[in-house]
Simulated scan of single mutants.
Amino acid sequence: MSETPSLHFSIEAGVATIRFNRPQVFNSVNKDVALALQQHLRECQQNPEVRAVLLTGTGKAFCAGQDLAEITGPDSPEVAEIVEKHYNPIVELIRALDKPVVAAVNGVAAGAGANLALACDVVVAKESASFIQAFSKIGLIPDSGGTYFLPRLIGMQRASALMLTGDKVSATEAVQMGMIYKAFSDEVFDSEVAKLVQKLAAMPTKGLAYTKQLLNGTFGNNLTQQLRAEADYQLRAGSTTDYKEGVSAFLEKRQPTFTGQ
């Protein structure tokens, strides 16, 4: 386990867990947290032992977004500089990562914290958690990919309303509108998250990566382009060891053992 005061990182049974650990400030992000998160995402990409990534928080919050104390002093960096150097690289690393990234939203996810969660491949939350596009409340615009992901997830009208008003969305409402995948009761949240990430870590990692890459490109392609991309990635998937194992297991009526190769 890699322990820093503000971000915990560990790898166990194929799952890399990255945990925000500033509960006293609702896991808000400062420079140290942002740069450490970038580094750990790079480690996840490079380490073949990692087959799924879990992003979550300690305490009552998932992540409250930017630590405003960092940008209000006399020598503080501009907000735009922080977005460019801290948040944009994180979002791009999550989307480029050749392994599934699960956001387990254990509490409030606000501002950039909400949008970092929405950048992940699968988002689940405690029923007591909530999502807030809080930027308008301090005169800023939604960043960290919010204006990209949210309209694609829930439609332009709802995304516009939530971003303009800054209204809070409960986890249950987020499921209903298609913002996130599932909400679990607080009592079973940890066990359900563990089952989910362990399931993904045991699946054909390259096939999942190819699926993720296809989804990354789908909104920029027309139908013909997407069909060609599917054919290309299917060729790659069919050349993997896991594909051969999956077919063999099906024919032999047994559970497959995938290695991620």
Rank of each mutant, 00 (worst) to 15 (best):
T72L: 13
G73S: 09
K253V: 12
L118C: 00
Q261A: 15
A171V: 03
S130G: 06
V175C: 09
V101R: 01
D190Y: 08
L97F: 07
V123N: 04
A16P: 06
L196Q: 06
M203K: 07
L214T: 09
P48T: 05
G155F: 08
D143Q: 12
A13R: 15
K126W: 05
L150K: 09
E173D: 13
I154F: 07
T241M: 13
Y243D: 05
K137D: 09
A34M: 08
R158L: 12
N221D: 14
E78W: 11
I138N: 09
G107A: 06
L251Q: 13
A129Y: 07
Q261R: 14
Q46R: 14
Y181A: 12
C120F: 02
G65E: 08
K199A: 07
S191Y: 05
H8F: 11
T165P: 02
T165I: 02
K60G: 03
I94C: 06
L196V: 06
V169S: 05
A96W: 12
Q157M: 11
A114V: 00
L41Y: 05
G14H: 05
Q225C: 02
S10F: 08
D186I: 03
A125V: 00
N115I: 02
T241R: 15
T165Y: 01
K85G: 09
S2G: 03
L223T: 09
L68M: 10
I138F: 13
G207N: 10
L68I: 09
A125Y: 04
T205M: 12
I11S: 02
V83Y: 15
V123R: 03
A52E: 05
Y87G: 06
T224W: 12
A202F: 04
Y181P: 00
F219H: 15
P151L: 08
G220N: 10
I90A: 02
S239A: 15
G246Y: 05
A171L: 03
S28V: 04
N30K: 11
Q213K: 15
